[in-house]
Amino acid sequence: MVRCSCPLFRKYGNFIDNLRLFTKGGSGGMGYPRLGGEGGKGGDVWVVAEKKMTLKQLKDRYPQKRFVAGGGIDSRVSALKGSKGKDCEIPVPVGISVTDENGKIIGELNKEKERILVAEGGLGGRLLTNFLPLKGQKRIIHLDLKLIADIGLVGFPNAGKSSLLSQISHAKPVIADYAFTTLKPELGKIMYQDFKQVSVADLPGLIEGAHMNKGMGHKFLKHIERTRQLLFVVDISGFQLSTQTQYRTAFETIILLTKELELYKQELQTKPALLAVNKMDLPGAQDKLHELMYQLQNPKDFLQLFETNMIPERIMKFQHIIPISAITREGIEELKNCIRKSLDEQDNQEKNARHQNQLLNLRISNAVSYSEPPSKHAIPSS
């Protein structure tokens, strides 16, 4: 693998979002043949979610990336049943997906203190094993971090996502007037007067072809999977990555962003979405906004501007469209209110769905109990 010495990848390297680890359960203890003793079971290896842990801390603390549980205690005359070996716990951040060497998902850790068994200890020696212990399970696992946030900011580089995050939350991301300022995910929290907190994730900017892992494609897209809602942030004046790439209007930007999400994983398009039209402080922004609103209301009339392979199957429907300026703070309070309203609506919908499922399960349970035939021991009615 060729290593790139450019600052872009060096900076991103400080943020680790995946690790490959070797794990091994402890071997069982020896049995005691003469007295029918049983050796202790080997210790297990667990992955445990901790709130303030990061994958970089894990790598720094355990540079060998090897986790082996303790062996079971041998059976002996004074203790015919040996004690279990010491378990090994791997501390990981909340929001980790654990997969095996073949890419099969072992489990996910979405809350603090949740745990997953990744390598089981071997059985102790006993009569069934001719009193010989069994070895512990060996397993290569992959830890994959996917951020968990209420809102994920979606946009091309230099759309103003970092500036917006600094305005709506207490986060202090790096901000500069050039593309790819954000090289690692930044998390901020919007604080409301009733003490409600909403987490917002500012993610590295997408580029065309992100679904094919161009730029920071998969590093960006996988984090979006763990956000409840999407907030598209587009520059009202459009976007052009470099002089070698094509200029895109704000409307074209939205269509291309939607297509990138679709090509990576169609389910991303089902998430509730809002649109922040940024940089409204620029000259001519109001006229461009009127044009954009008309295009969003009549998208099919403008899709002929695109090549067929760039048109998404499903056009994104935004619950709220808010013109803003992250510089002058125009529309910032309205945006925060719309975010809160949208999340509250989603909470109510999810609550009603759970209630409907409970009622449905109750009806099914009652229907089954009524349809059961009476017991043959039941006393006949007179």
Score class of each variant (00 low, 15 high):
residue 13 G to R: 12
residue 42 G to H: 01
residue 4 C to E: 04
residue 67 F to W: 03
residue 112 E to S: 07
residue 49 A to S: 04
residue 88 C to M: 15
residue 99 T to L: 12
residue 45 V to H: 01
residue 98 V to M: 02
residue 43 G to K: 07
residue 73 I to S: 02
residue 18 N to E: 14
residue 94 V to T: 06
residue 37 G to E: 09
residue 100 D to M: 15
residue 14 N to L: 10
residue 116 I to G: 08
residue 110 N to H: 03
residue 82 G to F: 06
residue 104 K to S: 10
residue 43 G to V: 08
residue 67 F to S: 01
residue 53 M to D: 00
residue 75 S to W: 04
residue 13 G to L: 11
residue 40 G to F: 14
residue 127 L to R: 13
residue 104 K to G: 09
residue 39 G to L: 05
residue 115 R to D: 00
residue 104 K to I: 14
residue 88 C to K: 15
residue 84 K to E: 05
residue 45 V to L: 00
residue 22 F to A: 11
residue 64 Q to K: 04
residue 85 G to C: 00
residue 100 D to I: 15
residue 120 E to Y: 13
residue 67 F to I: 02
residue 111 K to R: 14
residue 26 G to V: 14
residue 14 N to R: 13
residue 121 G to T: 08
residue 81 K to L: 04
residue 93 P to N: 12
residue 32 Y to S: 02
residue 105 I to A: 03
residue 99 T to G: 01
residue 112 E to T: 15
residue 34 R to K: 12
residue 52 K to L: 14
residue 11 K to M: 12
residue 64 Q to H: 03
residue 22 F to H: 14
residue 4 C to G: 04
residue 52 K to M: 12
residue 70 G to E: 01
residue 76 R to Q: 12
residue 124 G to D: 08
residue 17 D to Y: 13
residue 63 P to A: 06
residue 96 I to N: 11
residue 83 S to L: 15
residue 42 G to T: 01
residue 26 G to R: 14
residue 10 R to D: 05
residue 64 Q to V: 00
residue 44 D to N: 15
residue 26 G to D: 14
residue 20 R to F: 07
residue 11 K to V: 10
residue 92 V to A: 08
residue 119 A to K: 15
residue 42 G to V: 01
residue 47 V to A: 11
residue 99 T to F: 04
residue 66 R to K: 13
residue 119 A to T: 08
residue 23 T to K: 15
residue 6 C to R: 14
residue 34 R to W: 07
residue 87 D to W: 04
residue 29 G to Y: 05
residue 14 N to D: 13
residue 94 V to W: 11
residue 57 Q to P: 01
residue 123 L to T: 09
residue 2 V to K: 14
residue 70 G to Q: 08
residue 18 N to S: 13
residue 10 R to W: 10
residue 91 P to C: 12
residue 93 P to Y: 03
